[in-house]
């Protein structure tokens, strides 16, 4: 449960981070970030919350879980972005 939560928090944090990056927004066909201040806060707070959850559940070795779930969260976020970017590049692929 904690692992799933940590993966979710990392995924959301990564997505929030990418929504602040002009280059990524261009790839996604967007022009402006929505509430960049809030996104910045989210991209900092969610990993911290994930760290807290991992440490609370697993003690000191929770750090290893936190790092491992970061990789998984990053992969999930990257896959989502890749799909979204490929759709925005090719409008014909949109449902």
């Amino acid at each position: 449960m904690t692992i799933a939560l940590s993966i979710l928090l990392w995924t959301l944090a990564f997505l929030a981070h990418t929504q602040r990056q002009p280059r990524i927004l261009r790839l996604l066909g967007q022009h402006k970030a929505f509430a960049p201040g809030i996104l910045l806060l989210v991209s900092i707070l969610l990993p911290a919350a994930a760290l807290g959850a991992c440490l609370a559940a697993y003690g000191g070795v929770g750090l290893e879980y936190w790092i491992g779930t970061m990789t998984l969260g990053g992969v999930i976020a990257a896959m989502g972005l890749t799909v979204q970017a490929s759709r925005s590049e090719h409008p014909s692929k949109q449902p």
Partner: peptide, 11 residues
């Protein structure tokens, strides 16, 4: 590193 984080363009 941070601005291009998670960019992947397989095509």
């Amino acid at each position: 590193l941070f601005s291009d984080l998670l960019i992947f363009r397989p095509f």
